[in-house]
Design a protein around this nucleic acid. Structure first.
Length: 422
RNA sequence: GGAGAGAUGUCUGAGUGGCCGAAAGAGCACGCCUGGAAAGUGUGUAUAUGGGAAACUGUAUCGAGGGUUCGAAUCCCUCUCUCUCCGCCA
């Protein structure tokens, strides 16, 4: 959620920036400002009325104490009309307040200056490529054939016990998952992150805090009996750890990492290119999350990018980094780098990480602040990134490393899974 | 799931209708004292938001929301959470 202060004080800039992402929201900003102004006027009236009532109430108290019952009764009569007026004033203020919030939460974050103009994935900016695209042996096949051939994952079984998009990992397939999770966590811990094992269900307040609600209501699984949501990413519980918290400035940046399964309904997202591991309802991911000082957040974003690069390089996967264009960015992000690995048998780039700076968009919703040098509470910046999402890493690894003798496991993972070949 | 107790500021904890944004103590900050420190001592020490250049000031907040009342931390209702006992349970 953008801060009202920013919209009020830097209206022109806010409009220019939002235009890069969602041009229609330029008008929403005007609406917000209008509601804000009306709301503040209404509030001033309401408070003036309240102040008057408070003064009289105090006087009544004094009169009662001094035994002047008649005087008190006279004043009581006076407050009746104040009360009546107060009710109307409060109603109109509250109504404006509700409207304002409803509108404000629908405005996405404004993009960083470096974000390229564009509306579709084709307009993302390719800023870095690393590694060589392998030449596959004769008869190479996509990962969905490999997982059958080596009996690593069973989609049919998953469909039987749950539904499509819920894979069952078996044998070496399961061990490889566990190995990747441990490897990613260990690498993050080495980089100074604290490991967190959060709940997999979250309440609506948390969903709101990181921006999934109300924007992506239909994308999360909702356990309606208890009104809890299955997490779409560890970002949600781990970032919300700091909801309504005033952190110490000297503790920044706060670095947490967590492995969780992620649950996504992916409503309406099924179509071409979703075979095998490319798109799932449940998948595993290790997520890094930082709570940062506003002056440092872009430095930290670069640091997180470096971390993700390190992982991909240790896994010996060819990858590229995209700077997302305005239209392709997520709701709350100010700057997002997507990482894609090249899946040679499919001949496609697959997104395996998305690393973003949300600036104070989430912290404003969550009210996560620190006390600055002037003793004022200031919103922190929040960042997060996948490090990494497993299924497409696995897909790329299987496809790119297939040989006549089997599938070669990257050296870095061998100590974790205990085998060199599948 | 049943029964009971509770939720007050950074913490402990007082406060059953007006003098309470809230006693007292601890902690913390700054000053005095000291060669330095401890002890002692003085002052200060919530958040949000409106107005104001500022000093200052209006409003709201004692788990949350509603209600009663001229006036609520205090009375009533609903909810959430915590603790104890019982039940169930990996």
């Amino acid at each position: 959620m953008l801060t009202l202060q920013y919209l009020r004080e830097q209206t022109a800039e806010a409009k220019t920036r939002i235009n890069k992402k969602h041009p229609k929201h330029v008008e929403t900003i005007d609406l917000v400002l209008k509601l804000d102004e009306e709301g503040r006027k209404a509030k001033a009236l309401m408070e003036a009325n309240q102040a008057e009532a408070n003064v009289i109430a105090k006087k009544i108290g004094e009169l009662m104490k001094s035994g002047d019952k008649a005087g008190a009764e006279m004043l009581k009569a006076q407050t009746a009309q104040l009360k009546e007026a107060g009710k109307g004033l409060e109603d109109s203020y509250k109504q404006l307040e509700v409207q304002l919030n409803e509108v404000l939460v629908t405005i996405p974050n404004v993009p960083h200056a470096s974000v390229p103009l564009g509306q579709t994935a084709e307009e993302n900016e390719n800023i870095y490529e690393h590694g060589t695209i392998p030449t596959l042996p004769e008869g190479a096949v996509p990962h969905w054939d490999l997982i059958k051939k080596y009996d690593l994952i069973d989609f049919e079984l998953g469909a039987k016990i749950t539904g499509a998009g819920f894979p069952v990992y078996k044998g070496k397939g399961a061990r490889l998952q566990r190995a990747m999770i441990s490897f990613f966590l260990d690498e993050a811990i080495k980089a100074g992150y604290q490991e967190i094992m959060p709940p997999l269900l979250i309440n609506a307040d948390s969903g709101f805090g990181t921006g999934q609600l109300p924007d992506k209501e239909g994308q999360m699984y909702h356990a309606t009996v208890d009104d809890l949501y299955l997490i779409p990413t560890a970002e949600v519980p781990i970032t919300n750890l700091y909801r309504d918290v005033i952190v110490k400035e000297e503790d920044l940046p706060i670095k947490n990492v967590g492995y969780t399964p992620c649950f996504r309904r992916e409503a309406g997202a099924w179509g071409a290119h979703v075979r095998g591991l490319n798109r799932l309802h449940q998948f595993d991911k290790v997520e890094i999350v930082q709570i940062a000082h506003p002056d440092k957040s872009y430095e930290i974003l670069e640091e997180m990018v470096k971390h993700v690069q390190g992982l991909l390089e240790k896994l010996e996967l060819p990858y590229r980094i995209l700077r997302l264009c305005g239209g392709d960015m997520s709701f709350g992000s100010a700057l997002t780098y997507d990482f894609e690995t090249y899946s040679a048998a499919q001949g496609r780039w697959l997104e395996v990480s998305s690393t973003s700076n949300f600036e104070n968009f989430q912290s404003n919703r969550m009210k996560c602040r620190f006390k600055n040098k002037e003793g004022k509470n200031q919103l922190v910046h929040t960042l997060n990134g996948s490090a990494l999402a497993l299924p497409r890493i696995l897909a790329t690894m299987l496809e790119n490393n297939q040989t006549a003798e089997g599938i070669r496991i990257p050296t870095a993972l061998v100590p974790y899974c205990g085998f060199e070949m599948i």
